[in-house]
Amino acid sequence: MKTDIILAGVGGQGILSIASIIGDAAINENLYLKQAETHGMSQRGGAVVSHLRIADTEIAADLIPMGKADLILSVEPMEALRYLPFLSPKGYVVTNTTPFINIPNYPELNEILAEIEKQPRFVAIDADKIAAEIGNKRASNVVMLGAATPFIDIEPEKIEAGIEHIFCKKGEAVVEMNLKAFQAGRSFALENK
């Protein structure tokens, strides 16, 4: 078992929380884990990417080679495009359709989505809308995590346990809201993959 994941987005969108939750679940499954992060200027909406490698055998390198990612999980559509060269021919792209427009020449959203839709395997989800319907727009990253779980070789219940562990200090209401966001994202992906 091996899963190589590129997590991409913009500072403040919860990429590192996603990585922590998946990492917690992987460690509790006695899997090996390597992670490398690049932080942009997060206070100013800079790009953030994390390479997350999970396997049942030892992992030699932190970084995922070009063309080898099993999954690109992007909480921002333009960032999904940036990392397409990392996607393996059998990999999935799971992206939020809500843009984070942080530059004056941000491309047209329909052009970005058209490029993503050229991929043979993708899920495009309006995670911000789903999170708002659940009651907390800030949970869009956990909606995205849920949408990615059909393509991660870890049982969803283990990832839910990771959510509980990561958010438990924030109280039961926060945990429950994030579990609801996770389940909504997962349901969307299972219906639309």
Score class of each variant (00 low, 15 high):
Asn102Trp: 06
Asn110Thr: 07
Glu191Asn: 11
Thr38Gln: 00
Glu133Val: 05
Thr97Ser: 12
Lys137Thr: 09
Pro99Met: 14
Ile152Tyr: 04
Tyr32Val: 01
Asn102Val: 10
Arg44Val: 14
Met177Phe: 10
His165Ser: 15
Ser20Tyr: 10
Glu157Ser: 14
Ala161Gly: 12
Gly146Asn: 10
Phe100Ala: 13
Ile27Asn: 11
Gly40Lys: 08
Glu29Ile: 05
Leu190Gln: 13
Asn30Glu: 15
Gly12Asp: 11
Arg44Gly: 15
His51Arg: 11
Gly9Asn: 00
Ile163Gly: 09
Met144Trp: 00
Gln35Asp: 01
Val174His: 07
Ile54Asp: 06
Phe151Met: 03
Asp153Cys: 10
Pro120Gly: 13
Val93Gly: 00
Phe188Asp: 09
Thr3Cys: 09
Ala127Glu: 03
Gly11Met: 10
Leu84Arg: 05
Leu71Cys: 02
Glu79Lys: 07
Cys168Thr: 11
Phe182Asp: 00
Gly11Thr: 07
Ala55Trp: 05
His51Lys: 08
Ala8Cys: 03
Gly12Glu: 08
Ser20Glu: 15
Asn141Pro: 11
Ala61Leu: 12
Met66Pro: 13
Ile72Phe: 02
Gln35Trp: 08
Arg44Met: 15
Lys158Thr: 05
Glu108Pro: 09
Ile101Ser: 06
Ala181Trp: 00
Ile134Trp: 04
Thr57Asp: 13
Ser50Gln: 08
Leu113His: 03
Leu145Val: 08
Ala26Ile: 11
Gly162Leu: 10
Met66Leu: 15
Ser42Ile: 13
Lys169Tyr: 03
Ala127Lys: 05
His39Tyr: 14
Pro104Met: 02
Met1Lys: 11
Gly23Lys: 06
Gly23Asp: 01
Leu7Gln: 05
Phe167Cys: 02
Ile154Thr: 12
Ala80Gln: 02
Pro150Cys: 08
Val175Trp: 02
Gly91Tyr: 00
Arg82Leu: 04
Leu52His: 07
Asn178Gln: 08
Ile134Asn: 12
Gly185Met: 06
Thr149Ile: 12
Val48Cys: 12
Met78Val: 15
Gln13Phe: 07
Leu84Ala: 07
Thr57Lys: 15
Asn96Glu: 07
Ala47Ile: 09
Ser187Ile: 06
Ala69Ser: 00
Met144His: 05
Glu133Arg: 00
Ala131Gly: 06
Val75Ala: 03
Ala36Glu: 06
Val175Tyr: 04
Met78Gln: 14
Ala60Ile: 04
Phe188Ser: 07
Leu113Ile: 12
Ala36Trp: 06
Leu87Gln: 01
Ile112Tyr: 01
Ala173Pro: 07
Arg82Glu: 10
Ser20Lys: 13
Ala80His: 02
Glu108His: 14
Ile152Gly: 06
Asp4His: 13
Leu31Ser: 01
Lys169Gln: 11
Gly171His: 01
Asn30Cys: 14
Phe188Trp: 12
Ile112Val: 15
Asp62Leu: 13
Val93Phe: 06
Tyr106Ile: 09
Met144Val: 09
Ala19Lys: 05
Glu191Met: 01
Lys129Gln: 15
